[in-house]
Nucleic acid binder design. Structure first.
Length: 280
DNA sequence: GTTTAACCCTGCACGC
DNA sequence: TGCGTGCAGGGTTAAA
């Protein structure tokens, strides 16, 4: 789950849970639930920090969600690759791999399910929010106003590495993962293995524009739901950007721009898709 | 500074 | 039908 998916969920949460007061939190008995709240020693410790609190705001930092609470603490959530929030009610049975259920006073609940348990959630106390290790190294967000072409260009100048791992590096720019970095590179006409310090200023500008464009487009199409992954929004509805993908997952299919078959290669354990004709 | 691989985990596709 | 194997993926960490 990458920036667009997290942002769509954030917007849903803003409408659905901001202003609601938490009645009770259940951390499910299965041992994997403890993996999700791994920063807390006990189920009760996590639940007690949330009970009685009202959710006042939902922010996003890279792929992290930050739910602000009325006592200044914050519930920090990362979906890993298979985590999801679902809106529900007490009468609805819990989906399999549900690890946490947040019940609201005004009725209804919010479930966190995550089969592969790469996701995580924890309560950060108000006085430590600024120094949460996972959050403070996160680089600039492509949706922020401060993400300018000048800023991007300057940051790029400090590195000398292959473009794809650089785009996926959350300390360089936040929010891009395997899918969107491939889509960004296609939109920019650059290959995954082009060295970042070999780009002309024109190429840098095109890369910058591609990042903004792809991320905004993906959000507009309510993010990407792949066949083997299960991203859905708060109400279980899949995204639609998978129909707009230009290269990701399209091995052997004709490039939408030039009809050349899309190629896939293995790059440090991750699949990379690109058009050998359009990208250089 | 950069690069690679291993690790965490489960569901699923595949071959036999 | 049923088993074993390998793969996917984000982020961290250790090692090269």
């Amino acid at each position: 789950m990458e920036l667009p998916e997290v942002e769509v969920v954030r917007r849903d949460l803003e409408k659905e849970v901001v202003g609601r007061r938490i009645k009770e939190v259940e951390v499910r008995p299965h041992r994997n639930a403890m993996r999700i709240i791994r920063r807390h020693a006990r189920r009760k410790e996590f639940a007690d920090l949330l009970a009685g609190r009202k959710i006042t705001k939902v922010d996003r930092k890279g792929k992290y969600l930050i739910l602000a609470l009325d006592d200044g603490d914050a519930l920090v959530v990362h979906f890993g690759m298979s985590g999801q929030f679902l809106r529900g009610t007490k009468r609805q049975s819990l989906p399999s791999h549900t690890h946490v259920v947040i019940e609201f006073q005004q009725g209804g609940d919010l479930r966190y399910a995550d089969p592969r348990t790469f996701g995580e959630m924890f309560v950060a106390p108000a006085d430590q929010l600024g120094k949460v290790r996972e959050l403070d190294h996160i680089a600039i967000d492509p949706l922020e106003d401060t993400f300018t072409w000048q800023e991007f260009s300057a940051e790029l100048g400090r590195r000398a590495t292959k473009l794809k791992p650089l785009l996926m590096d959350q300390k360089f720019i936040s929010g891009l993962g395997n899918i969107y970095s491939d889509e960004v590179l296609f939109a920019a006409g650059r290959r995954h293995d082009r060295m970042s310090d070999s780009l002309s200023s024109q190429e840098v500008r095109r890369l910058y524009r591609a990042i903004r464009e792809v991320v905004l487009d993906a959000i507009r199409f309510t993010a990407t739901t792949l066949a083997d992954e299960a991203y859905v929004d708060l109400f279980g509805k899949p995204g639609e950007f998978q129909n707009e993908l230009k290269v990701y997952g399209r091995t052997g299919l004709a490039c939408r721009r030039c009809r050349t078959p899309i190629v896939t290669i293995k790059l440090s354990g991750r699949n990379s898709y690109y058009c050998p004709q359009c990208q250089s």
